[in-house]
Amino acid sequence: MIKDFEYSAPGTLDEALSLISQYGEDGKIIAGGQSLLLLMRRKLVAPRYLVDIKGISSLDYINISENGDLNIGALTTHRAIETSREIQQKFRILSEMEENIAAVENRNWGSIGGNLCHADPVGDPSPVLVALNARLEIVSVRGERTVAVEDFARDRFYVNLAHDEILTEIQVPCPAPRTGSKYTKFSILEGSFALASVAMSVTLNAKSDICDDVRIALGAVNSTAMRAREAEEVLIGKEITDELLEKAGEVASGEADPIGDMRASAAYRKELVKVLVKRVGKEALLRAGKDSWEGSSAKSDGKVALLGRR
């Protein structure tokens, strides 16, 4: 049972900011409520003041600027991102990620900002946004600041956000030419929590197939989404081959620090990271326009060729 609280539903950001700055620690923001209401029903959170910001329509938008940067209002629903034509065309990894979050009902109501602020280590948007090098705009009555998504979640269910601050916007830079990205999560049911997930964004050199830049983000294998920096090092500056991806997978798996629970052991999650890095990397490379992938996609399924050599 939920304890009584004072409820307000401000219509503007300014109103909301002023309310939460008054309430301080006793206040809590609710966006879609897909996570917070569960915590409240389990009595894990019992705010005295609940500020429902879902009605602030100025925070519900998807904009792609002329230079190709993507700005998403924090209250944009998962479903809106999933079904946005522009995102499907230009930031396919985002819409694909959204497709596999819970069920349509949750995606219709839950927002991307709420998801990020909830900071569940198994959350899907974080690793994708980390791989895309996205930043967050945070506003309070005191002013504005931005923070990299990578630095936003500090620990499980704990984010870099003061009591008087509201996450307002997700800023995704336009990918460099010849950039491809891909996200995959491994879960028991489609749509259920990830046992492990990997997002990767690869940028190839304009003239060769050398990897100029890569960002590998792992989900569900640490207290927050994490960069697999050592694995990135394996790939940067090289022409990526099956063997290198395999190596990157092993390195990333070593960087992962998952817990074991009733769903999966830590060791298995690490194994999943290995496989996912390989598979995600291959797809990201294809999307980056690497056309001379040895043996094409038919063979790209045949990773056992590598295993056989062991």
Binding site: G33, L37, L38, V104, N106, N108, W109
Partner: peptide
């Protein structure tokens, strides 16, 4: 808890779990 969908209703043309809708 928003897991089963027995309470799905349509709000402004979109389904939602009524149990997770304030």
């Amino acid at each position: 808890m928003g897991d089963c969908g027995a309470c799905s209703v349509i709000v402004n043309g979109k389904t939602t779990h009524a149990c997770l809708t304030p």
